[in-house]
Amino acid sequence: MKTIGFVGLGSMGLPMAINLGKAGFAVTGFDLRAEARGALQAAGGEAAGSLAEAFSGRDAVVLMVVNAGQAEDILFGQAALAQLAPGGIAILMATCPPAAVAALAARVEAAGHMLVDAPVSGGVVGAEAGSLTIMAAARRPVFDAVKPVLDAMGSKVVFMGEEPGQGATAKAVNQLLCGAHLAIAAEALSLAEKLGVDTQAMLDIVSGSAASSWMLRDRGARMLEREPRVTSAVDIFVKDLGIVLEAGRDAKAALPMAALAHQLFLSVSGRGLGAHDDSQVIAAYRALQGRDAT
């Protein structure tokens, strides 16, 4: 497996594609934004002018897109899957509902290809460092075939099973914790603000104490900035926590913390901040406390 197409050169997708190139794969990437295609080309990759070009004759294609609907449209609505090399593999790395992934995998297999369900965790930091955690599900020979590709993007590649959707299920559990950790970190820092505590000093304390979490250490400083760089948008967590709640509903599992976190992100999105960095969930607390939420 040498030639890789890559669709979705966003804040995570671009460094992932670049890392594939560094690992020796021939990477051809496509994104609707010309600047993203140019950035890949500047880093040594090949910029595709269309989806068909990104897929054409490739051994595998990575889909780092927004959701399952977008992946389905690319593969079937725009018929890009038909451009893959015979036996070529589609690697879906977006966060999607497990049932949607299973249905998409069945369609891909019926078309003569295979799909690897491989969502990631680790954010922009992990994407840039090549240290993502990748939760992969596919038939074992297919997983083995794409393992070197996954290893180029992640430091922890976990085989979740042979049924598509098992990777997506693991990602849902992961996102429950990420969303809840992020919301509670925002609650703590908003309390410090409200009480007049030095927020930088407070962040230093909690980041290095038993109260710490990865999400706090990664997002805490940006919660205190007026206009932080966007590494993952509020609306991403609106989507992801919606997937978590859907999984819980299907399993008849009560998820009160996930539901509350989802409402907080939703309230911030409803204020017109959906495209802002997800650290700005703190705006929900500022609004509840009668302070400037923006």
Rank of each mutant, 00 (worst) to 15 (best):
M1P: 01
T3L: 07
G5K: 04
F6H: 01
V7D: 04
G8V: 11
G8C: 05
M12R: 00
P15D: 08
A17F: 10
N19F: 12
N19C: 12
N19E: 06
A23K: 03
G24V: 13
G29R: 02
L32W: 00
R33V: 14
A39C: 07
A39K: 11
L40T: 03
Q41K: 14
L51T: 04
F55V: 08
G57A: 04
G57H: 00
V61Y: 03
V61P: 05
V62S: 03
V66P: 04
N67V: 12
Q70D: 10
Q70N: 08
A71C: 09
E72V: 11
E72A: 13
F76S: 06
G77D: 04
Q78K: 13
A80T: 01
A82T: 08
A82I: 08
L84F: 08
L84A: 05
G87F: 06
G88M: 02
I91V: 14
I91N: 01
L92F: 06
A94C: 04
P98Y: 07
A100W: 01
A102T: 14
A103Y: 07
A103P: 04
A106P: 00
R107N: 09
E109M: 14
E109P: 09
E109W: 07
A110F: 06
A111I: 14
G112N: 06
G112Y: 12
G112C: 13
H113Y: 10
A118W: 04
V120T: 13
V125I: 14
V125C: 00
A127F: 10
E128A: 15
E128R: 15
A129L: 12
A129T: 11
G130T: 07
S131T: 15
T133W: 11
T133H: 07
I134V: 12
A136D: 06
A137I: 05
V142K: 00
F143A: 09
K147W: 02
P148K: 08
P148C: 09
V149M: 09
L150W: 00
L150T: 08
D151H: 05
E162T: 06
E162K: 04
Q166P: 07
Q166W: 06
A170F: 03
K171N: 06
N174E: 08
L176H: 01
L177E: 01
A180N: 03
A183Q: 08
E193N: 05
G196A: 09
D198E: 08
Q200E: 10
D204M: 09
S209H: 01
A210L: 14
A210M: 15
A211F: 10
S213Q: 06
W214Y: 15
M215I: 09
L216W: 05
L216Q: 01
R217C: 07
R219V: 10
A221R: 05
M223P: 02
L224A: 09
L224D: 03
E225V: 06
R226W: 12
E227G: 00
T231M: 12
L241Q: 01
L241M: 10
I243K: 03
V244L: 10
E246K: 13
G248L: 13
R249A: 15
A253I: 15
A261M: 05
S267N: 02
S269K: 09
G272P: 04
L273F: 11
L273Q: 11
G274W: 01
A275M: 10
H276V: 15
H276D: 13
D278S: 11
D278N: 14
D278Q: 14
Q280L: 08
Q280V: 06
I282H: 01
Y285E: 07
Y285D: 03
R286V: 05
R286Q: 03
A287E: 05
A287F: 10
G290D: 04
R291T: 11
A293S: 11
